[in-house]
Simulated scan of single mutants.
Amino acid sequence: MSYPDEQLLDRRPLLRNAADALPERVGAPLHAFLDHLDATPLIELTADYVTTFDHRKKFSPYLTYFAYGDTRKRGMALLRFKHAYRRAGLLIGDDELPDHLSVVLEFAATGDPEAGKRLMIEHRAGLELIRLGLREAKSPWAYVLESVSATLPPLVGRDEDAVARLAAVGPPEEEVGLAPFLPGGAR
């Protein structure tokens, strides 16, 4: 789920072997994505990645964005990610936000699988919203999210409601200090 580069393309045989070893529900979507990588020039992959993830908030790869938007509360959520990484002995640099899906997936795979899974479950509504949006847009990146989602417990009850609510309303917006600029004045 990170920006595609030559290293990703060079790792395709390794990724195929890994996908072969996974249960069908997890591995099959990865194979579909790898088929896309095989058939698409790198310049197109990078352009599609930027268009998909950098230009549309609907597909934001930052998991806390969906729960907190660009509000002050998001900072505390980001700290929770950093603390989870630190407890596992991993330090993340300041050049990447800790809630970027590629960082969370790498942490879950190589750092602390249970803590990584817990972080994804806590932000499941956003993860599912990305997955559903990518599927609807017929984006090849949807295959990767299908695989990730297949590793998590099924959505039920409140989780399904949270996804539907988030899809209808969107992430929260900061209104603190904006009262004089809101329609109708202060609230």
Results as ranks from 00 to 15, higher is better:
residue 177 G to Q: 05
residue 40 T to W: 02
residue 7 Q to R: 13
residue 126 G to S: 02
residue 102 S to H: 11
residue 9 L to K: 02
residue 34 L to P: 11
residue 134 L to D: 06
residue 28 A to Y: 10
residue 19 A to Q: 03
residue 146 E to T: 11
residue 46 T to M: 13
residue 19 A to F: 00
residue 9 L to S: 05
residue 119 L to S: 14
residue 171 P to A: 11
residue 60 S to V: 15
residue 120 M to N: 02
residue 55 H to S: 15
residue 164 A to Q: 13
residue 30 L to W: 10
residue 122 E to C: 01
residue 35 D to S: 07
residue 106 E to A: 02
residue 48 D to S: 10
residue 14 L to E: 01
residue 140 P to W: 11
residue 134 L to N: 08
residue 85 Y to H: 04
residue 121 I to E: 03
residue 163 V to P: 01
residue 46 T to G: 11
residue 21 A to T: 01
residue 164 A to W: 04
residue 131 R to I: 09
residue 155 L to K: 06
residue 158 R to M: 07
residue 13 P to N: 09
residue 160 E to R: 12
residue 168 A to V: 04
residue 92 I to N: 01
residue 69 G to Q: 03
residue 127 L to A: 09
residue 37 L to R: 01
residue 159 D to V: 10
residue 39 A to N: 11
residue 93 G to P: 11
residue 76 M to V: 15
residue 99 D to I: 08
residue 47 A to Y: 12
residue 137 A to S: 03
residue 96 E to L: 12
residue 90 L to I: 04
residue 39 A to F: 14
residue 41 P to N: 02
residue 140 P to N: 09
residue 180 P to M: 05
residue 91 L to M: 14
residue 89 G to A: 10
residue 72 R to A: 13
residue 96 E to N: 07
residue 19 A to P: 04
residue 82 K to T: 12
residue 127 L to W: 08
